[in-house]
């Protein structure tokens, strides 16, 4: 025990001097490193929060994608189920458009062919009987 105290006493002086030197040399860097550590810890915390948020976002997106997929599937099912209806609507649309042309053609035929063919047979008395039905 006495020997250990002697060694401690003999070595204590230089060790303190060395520690003092090391502290003088490295304390600023140490403080810097510790500040970096603290900052990194904070950033790590934030990163974990971001990752958590990202996970949540991904989960939300997956839920949204699932909902969209379901809507798409439903739309496709509806479209497939209504193919015949769509075909009928398209045919009806074509027919409606064709009626425009038919009206034009018939008006043309009446004014250019029928009326000129019959104008010599027009009975003025018959025309007089064609009274207006509205006023």
């Amino acid at each position: 025990m006495a020997a250990r105290s002697t060694v401690k006493r003999l070595a204590g002086g230089p060790a303190r001097r060395v520690r003092g030197l090391v502290q003088r040399a490295f304390v600023p860097q140490l403080a810097e490193l510790m500040a970096d550590r603290d900052r990194l810890n904070r950033e790590l915390g934030l990163a974990f929060e971001s990752v958590s948020a990202a996970h949540q976002g991904i989960a939300d997106l997956q839920a949204e994608a699932k909902a969209l997929r379901e809507r798409l599937d439903m739309t496709l099912l509806l479209a497939e189920a209504n193919q015949e209806e769509i075909r009928q609507v398209k045919a009806g649309l074509l027919e409606t458009r064709r009626q425009s042309l038919r009206i034009a053609e018939l008006a043309d035929v009446v004014t250019e062919i029928v009326l000129p063919l019959h104008d010599r047979d027009i009975d003025p008395e018959a025309l007089k009987r064609l009274s207006a039905d509205t006023y």
Binding site: R97, S100, L101, I103, A104, E105, A107, D108
Partner: peptide, 12 residues
């Protein structure tokens, strides 16, 4: 502005 009138005009 209506296709029927436009068609008839083109026939004329």
């Amino acid at each position: 502005s209506h296709p029927a009138d436009v068609a008839r005009e083109c026939l004329q």
